[in-house]
């Protein structure tokens, strides 16, 4: 299947994220929205298994948030109580799941962008009238995340090669070790960013208020239909809410 124009995905993610914010209490609506985003991601061949594998830690945090939220929203039937105080209620549990699903809508929605090359995303942002400086800043910033993660992993491997078994360290020592490792990674990242900025400036970046583009995006008739469908769905969703 040919990938839709990235602007279609921008519209889809904008619409679904807006609805994820607007749905405040209805768990069924949020579940439906999440199912829709998940289906779109699967249809566009986003490697979901890989995504959820990478997000294992984040999913644990989401579960924790959901449980925490459920304790602070006492409504409905009491499921768990202590000393006569309701700890876990059906209303609280539903609210906790809703919060977790909301975050998953954002995450899975954003993951759809990963199927596009950076240049296509920059061009989409530029053609959506976003200043090109910001479009480049965003895309290059995103590129730095995996690079810095790799540098951190390399530092960890270097430590392990010197005989330090991180898993065996006590939490306090482990935290201080990570803080030692983070500093050179951040300094390295900043140095890299500075050199890249100099290199870009010497290649006339920001020389003029606008720039020509060797690569450009064109909406196909299929893209237009998809955009209309998203708009109709968004309007219908607005009425339902």
């Amino acid at each position: 299947m040919k990938k839709p124009d990235p602007r279609v995905i921008f519209a889809l993610v904008f619409a679904t994220s807006t609805f994820a914010i607007l749905i405040r209490e209805n768990l069924a609506q949020m579940a439906g929205l999440f199912a829709l985003v998940l289906a779109c991601a699967a249809l566009l061949r986003v490697p979901l298994k890989q995504l959820f594998g990478r997000l294992k830690r984040l999913l644990q945090i989401l579960l924790f948030v959901a449980i925490l939220r459920s304790f602070f929203t006492p409504s409905g039937l009491v499921l768990l109580a202590a000393w006569g105080l309701p700890l876990l209620t059906t209303g609280g549990l539903s609210m906790g799941i809703l919060v977790a699903l909301r975050l998953l809508v954002f995450i899975v929605g954003a993951s759809i962008f990963t199927i596009y090359p950076t240049r296509a995303l920059i061009q989409a942002m530029v053609q959506l009238r976003l200043p090109y400086e910001i479009a480049y800043m965003v895309s290059i910033g995103i590129r730095f995340v995996p690079q810095m993660a790799q540098e951190l992993r390399d530092s960890l491997i270097a430590l392990q090669l010197r005989g330090i078994v991180i898993e065996e360290l006590k939490l306090k020592k482990r935290i201080s070790l990570y803080s030692y490792l983070l500093l050179p990674t951040i300094v390295g990242g900043l140095r890299h960013a500075k050199e890249l900025a100099m290199s870009m400036e010497m290649r006339a970046f920001r020389a003029k208020p606008s720039r020509t583009s060797f690569f450009s995006l064109k909406l196909s008739s299929k893209d237009v239909i998809l955009l209309i469908l998203i708009a109709v769905a968004a309007i219908a969703g607005g009425f339902i809410l």
């Binding site: 290649r203 006339a204 970046f205 003029k208 720039r211 020509t212 583009s213 060797f214 690569f215």
Partner: peptide, 9 residues
């Protein structure tokens, strides 16, 4: 192309 785009070629 990056530099060429910047000088509006």
């Amino acid at each position: 192309a990056f530099g060429l785009e910047n000088i509006c070629m």
